[in-house]
């Protein structure tokens, strides 16, 4: 961990925290967003902590499990962190589906928050 660049450390800690919250109680995800945060979920746009948490909380499944296959992190010129995750998920008893998720993290009042997030299932039948 020590010799990893700082953005890798912050990015991977965020990713771990995010999916752990998502898989246990996604109604508690509010803490990682701010009112300027944007979420694009399967092409649908949501802005603001409340709208984002509402969307994520209302997804129609009881339990979900994410499994991260790979994650990449980069520092941006304005001191943010860009993260991309490729993984698989299983909602209730459905089959496993692939997904891609991208995050932009920003240090806001001493804490790292997610200002931008994009989610897509890895489906190619569109």
């Amino acid at each position: 961990m020590g010799d990893k660049p700082i953005w890798e450390q912050i990015g991977s800690s965020f990713v771990q925290h995010y999916y752990q919250l998502f898989d246990t109680d996604r109604t508690h995800l509010g803490a990682i967003y701010i009112d300027a945060s944007c979420l694009t979920w399967e092409g649908q746009q949501f802005q603001g902590k409340a709208a984002i948490v509402e969307k994520l909380s209302s997804l129609p499944f009881q339990k979900i499990q994410h499994s991260i296959t790979a994650q990449d992190h980069q520092p941006t010129p304005d001191s943010c962190i860009l993260s991309m995750v490729v993984g698989q998920l299983k909602a209730d008893d459905d089959q496993v589906l692939g997904f891609h998720q991208t995050f932009l993290l920003k240090n806001f009042q001493g804490a790292w928050v997610c200002t931008n997030e994009i989610f897509r299932l890895a489906l190619h039948n569109v």
Partner: peptide, 14 residues
């Protein structure tokens, strides 16, 4: 549908 309708609405292509 493999459960994809939980994440998005099904498109015409489907």
């Amino acid at each position: 549908t493999a459960g994809q309708e939980r994440f998005r609405s099904l498109t015409t292509a489907f």
